[in-house]
């Protein structure tokens, strides 16, 4: 399952981050790394992007990029 599939309110632990390096580097540097707990807080009214919470702050990213974030089962 990926971060894009997580329901609103759902929480999970990050397994791996893949995608273009421009995106993965940025995500990892903002703390989205293996082992981190993430929670999907809400989805933009138009369906994309999504807002997640990690390490005590709110981050928004597009679904296409969230699909590269694999979650632990």
């Amino acid at each position: 399952m990926t971060l894009a599939d997580l329901e609103i309110g759902g929480e999970a632990t990050v397994q791996s981050v893949s995608g273009p390096r421009r995106v993965t580097c940025r995500l990892m540097e903002m703390g989205l790394l293996k082992g981190v707990r993430v929670k999907v807080v809400r989805v933009a009214p138009l369906g994309d992007p999504i807002e997640i919470r990690l390490r005590g702050y709110a981050l928004s990213l597009r679904r296409e990029d969230a699909r590269g974030v694999e979650l632990e089962a």
Binding site: P20, R22, V23, R26, L27, M30, P49, E51, Y57, A58, L59, S60, L61, R62, D65
Partner: peptide
């Protein structure tokens, strides 16, 4: 050129 990713903090 590549569109920059939207990885945006919501402060």
């Amino acid at each position: 050129g590549p569109a920059p990713a939207l990885v945006l903090e919501l402060p």
